[in-house]
C-alpha cells in the first residue's frame, strides 16, 4: 500500500459555511430595499447603486493588486456589500463622480488601509458616507421626491427629508403636530414613500431583509433590538415630556435610516462586538447617540455617526464582555 495519505490535525471536517455564503446572503437581504428604491426613485437608484458597486469592486481589486498583493478578494462579495450600502446611504440623484469618490474613501480608507476584510475597525460604507456628508453637504442633502415608476434621468423635483423638516421646524418654534401634518403619513414611511437616501426609505423591505438574515443566522437579534429599543425608549420619554417639542418614537424609528442602520450597518460582523452582551450594549449606545444627535445636535439624523462612534468602542466592549466560561463561576445548587 504505497498510497500517500494526507495527515493533518483534527477536526477533519468543516461545516458548510463560508465567507462568500455570508456575504451573498447579506446581498440577497438587501434586494427588497433596492427594488423599492428603484420603484420610487427610478433610474437614479439603479445608476447610483451600479456605480457604487462597480467602483467599490474596482478599487478593492486595484489596491489589492498594487499594495496588498496576495489573492484578490473581490469575489468574496464584501466589496459589493460596501458599494450597495454606500448607495443605500446617499440620495439617488447624487452626481456620479461624488459616488466614485465615496466608494474610493470607503474601500481605500475604510477597509484596505487596515489590511482588507476583517481588519477594519469602522464600517467602510459609513466611512465613505460620512466623508461625503462632510465634503459635499449640499449634494448629499438634496433629496428627490419619490415618484413611483417614473423612469427618467431628468432631474427629479427635490425636497427635504421628514427629519430635516422636523429639525428646521422645531428650530423655528413650530409645534411638532403642525409639522407632522405637512408630512407623509406613517403608512407611507412604512412602505417607503418619502424623501431620503435610496435604501433607507422602506421599513417593510428592510425588515424583510432582516428576517431573512436572522433565519439564515447571518445576524442575531441583539444589535437591532437593543438599538431600536433604545431609540424608542429615549424618544418616547422625550415625547411624553413634551409632545410639542419632540416627535413620537414611531416617527423616529421609521425615518432617517434607523432601520437600515439597525439591520444592515450596525450588524456588520467585522465592526461589532463578539458576544451577545457586548452586542446589546453596542446597540444601546448607538440608539442613545442617535437620539442625542437628532434632538440636540446639528444634524437632522444621527445613525451613521452613532454607529461609527460605537465602532470605535468595540475593542473595549470585547474586553469588557467576554463569553462566560464553562466552569468559571460554578453554582451547582
Amino acid at each position: 500500500m504505497s498510497k500517500l495519505l494526507s495527515v493533518s490535525p483534527s477536526p477533519h471536517v468543516a461545516g458548510n459555511y463560508s465567507v462568500k455564503k455570508i456575504m451573498y446572503g447579506v446581498i440577497i437581504a438587501m434586494l427588497p430595499a433596492l427594488f423599492v428604491s428603484i420603484y420610487y426613485f427610478g433610474l437614479g437608484a439603479i445608476k447610483v447603486t451600479l456605480i457604487a458597486v462597480l467602483s467599490a469592486i474596482f478599487f478593492e481589486w486595484l489596491i489589492q493588486k498594487l499594495f496588498l498583493k496576495g489573492k484578490s478578494t473581490i469575489a468574496d462579495g464584501s466589496a459589493i456589500i460596501t458599494g450597495m450600502l454606500l448607495a443605500f446611504n446617499v440620495p439617488s440623484n447624487l452626481p456620479c463622480w461624488i459616488i466614485i469618490v465615496g466608494s474610493f474613501v470607503a474601500i481605500a480608507v475604510g477597509k484596505m488601509t487596515f489590511g482588507g476584510l476583517g481588519n477594519n475597525p469602522f464600517n467602510p460604507a459609513l466611512v465613505g458616507r460620512v466623508f461625503l456628508l462632510i465634503s459635499f453637504p449640499v449634494d448629499m442633502t438634496r433629496w428627490p421626491i419619490p415618484e413611483p415608476l417614473k423612469f427618467s434621468l431628468t432631474d427629479a423635483t427635490t425636497g427635504a427629508t421628514p427629519l430635516a423638516i422636523l429639525k428646521e421646524g422645531v428650530k423655528n418654534g413650530t409645534p411638532v403636530d403642525q409639522l407632522m401634518s405637512k408630512m407623509p403619513d406613517y403608512m407611507d414611511y412604512f412602505i417607503g414613500q418619502m424623501g431620503g437616501s435610496l435604501g433607507e426609505v422602506s421599513a417593510i423591505a428592510l425588515i424583510i431583509g432582516g428576517i431573512y438574515m436572522l433565519m439564515r443566522k447571518i445576524i442575531t437579534w441583539h444589535i437591532p433590538v437593543s438599538m431600536i429599543g433604545a431609540i424608542a425608549l429615549f424618544t418616547g420619554i422625550l415625547w411624553l415630556v413634551d409632545p410639542t417639542q419632540y416627535a413620537d418614537p414611531l416617527f423616529h424609528l421609521l425615518t432617517g435610516g434607523v432601520l437600515l442602520g439597525a439591520i444592515f450597518m450596525a450588524t456588520d460582523m467585522v465592526t461589532s462586538p463578539m458576544t451577545p452582551a457586548g452586542q446589546l450594549v453596542f446597540g444601546l449606545g448607538i440608539g442613545i447617540i442617535t437620539v442625542v444627535i437628532r434632538v440636540f445636535g446639528a444634524y437632522p439624523e444621527g445613525v451613521s455617526f452613532a454607529i461609527l462612534i460605537m465602532n470605535a468602542v468595540v475593542p473595549l466592549l470585547n474586553k469588557a464582555f467576554k463569553p462566560k466560561r464553562f466552569g468559571e463561576e460554578v453554582n451547582n445548587g
Binding site: 465567507v19 455570508i22 476584510l117 467585522v270 463578539m274
Partner: peptide, 11 residues
C-alpha cells in the same frame, strides 16, 4: 482543507 481567509469576526 479549504483555503484560509481573514477572520471576519463573525463570532
Amino acid at each position: 482543507r479549504r483555503e484560509v481567509q481573514n477572520c471576519i469576526r463573525c463570532a
